[in-house]
C-alpha cells in the first residue's frame, strides 16, 4: 500500500515535481482570478487596435482592440477547465474499464481490450477534427471528444496493473472470502492505483491542453470562447501582422502560456511517476 505522505514528499523533493506542482497551482490561481476579475471583458473592444503594452493594457491590444491580458486570463480558464475535465473524465473512464478488464480477464477483458486496440489505432488528430466538426463546435463537445479518445491509454495501463494485483495474496484472500469486484475495486484497487492514476491524469491534462489549443488554432474549437489557440490563430490570420511589431504582444503571450501550461502538467506527471517508481523501488 502506498504511503501518501511519502509520495508527496518524494514529489516535492524532486525539482521537476516541485516546478510542475507550483506551476499548475499558479495557473489555477490565474484561472480562478479570471472568474472574479479581469481588467476588461475578454470580448469587449477596450481600446484602439494594436496598442503596444502599457499602463492601460498590460499586454497591449489585438487587431480588434481587445485587451490581450484579459484574453490570456480567459484562455487560462478555458484551458484548465478542459484539462481538468478531460483528465478526470478519461482517468475515471480508463480506470473503471481497465480495472474491469483486468479483473475479468477472460470474456469481458478480451472484448474491452479489443475495443481499446481499435480506438488506439484510429488516427487521433484527424478523428478529433472530424468529431469536433460533427458535434458542432462547443467546449463540452470538444471535452467529450478528448475524453473519448484518451481513455483507452489509461485503461491499458490500469488493466496490466490490475492483472498483477489480483494475483497478490491479500487480494486473492479477499476474493476467496467472497469480496466481489466492486468491493475489491473500492477497498483495494483504487487505493493501490490512485497515485498511478494521478500521474496518468496529469499526462492526460497536458494532452488535453495541446489538443484544445490545436483545435482552436484550426478554428474548430468553441467559437464563443477566447482560448489561447483562438488567439494564436487570430494573430496569424491578421493581414501583415508578422511584419509589424505587434506580433510580440499578440502572438507570443498565448504561445508562451500554452507551452507553459503543458510544461507544468507534464512535469507534474513525470514527477508523480518518478516519485511512485522510487517508492516501489524501496
Amino acid at each position: 500500500m502506498h504511503n501518501w505522505k511519502h509520495v508527496t514528499t518524494s514529489l516535492w523533493s524532486r525539482s521537476a515535481g516541485r516546478v510542475g506542482l507550483l506551476g499548475v497551482m499558479g495557473l489555477t490561481v490565474l484561472a480562478l482570478t479570471s472568474l472574479v476579475w479581469s481588467p476588461y471583458p475578454p470580448e469587449a473592444v477596450a481600446g484602439a487596435s494594436l496598442m503596444p503594452p502599457g499602463l492601460l493594457h498590460p499586454l497591449g491590444t489585438n487587431g480588434l482592440g481587445q485587451d490581450i491580458f484579459s484574453q490570456v486570463l480567459c484562455g487560462c480558464r478555458v484551458s484548465l477547465l478542459v484539462a481538468l475535465t478531460v483528465s478526470i473524465g478519461s482517468s475515471s473512464c480508463g480506470f473503471f474499464i481497465g480495472a474491469a478488464a483486468g479483473y475479468y480477464p477472460r470474456r469481458l477483458g478480451v472484448f474491452l481490450m479489443r475495443l481499446v486496440d481499435v480506438l488506439m489505432a484510429i488516427p487521433r488528430l484527424p478523428m478529433i477534427i472530424l468529431l469536433a466538426v460533427f458535434l458542432r463546435p462547443h467546449l463540452l463537445n470538444v471535452t467529450a471528444v478528448l475524453i473519448f479518445l484518451s481513455w483507452p491509454g489509461v485503461a491499458r495501463t490500469i488493466r496490466s496493473q490490475v492483472l498483477a494485483l489480483r494475483e497478490q495474496d491479500s487480494i486473492r484472500f479477499v476474493r476467496f472470502c467472497g469480496g466481489g469486484f466492486t468491493y475489491v475495486l473500492h477497498r483495494h484497487l483504487i487505493r493501490e492505483l490512485f497515485p498511478l492514476l494521478l500521474a496518468k491524469s496529469a499526462m492526460a491534462a497536458s494532452y488535453a491542453i495541446v489538443a484544445e489549443a490545436g483545435l482552436s488554432f484550426l478554428g474548430l474549437g468553441d467559437p464563443t470562447l477566447k482560448s489561447w489557440g483562438t488567439m494564436i490563430r487570430g494573430a496569424l490570420d491578421y493581414p501583415g501582422l508578422l511584419w509589424m511589431p505587434a506580433w510580440t504582444w499578440w502572438l507570443v503571450p498565448p504561445a508562451m502560456m500554452v507551452s507553459l501550461a503543458v510544461f507544468f502538467c507534464t512535469l507534474l506527471g513525470y514527477g508523480l511517476d518518478e516519485a511512485l517508481r522510487r517508492q516501489e523501488g524501496e
Binding site: G214, A255, L260, V262, F263
Partner: peptide, 15 residues
C-alpha cells in the same frame, strides 16, 4: 527536454 516536448508543434511552428 520536457519543456521542448511541451511546446505544441503549431506554437513552436508559428514562432
Amino acid at each position: 527536454a520536457v519543456f521542448f516536448e511541451s511546446v505544441p508543434s503549431f506554437v513552436l511552428g508559428s514562432l
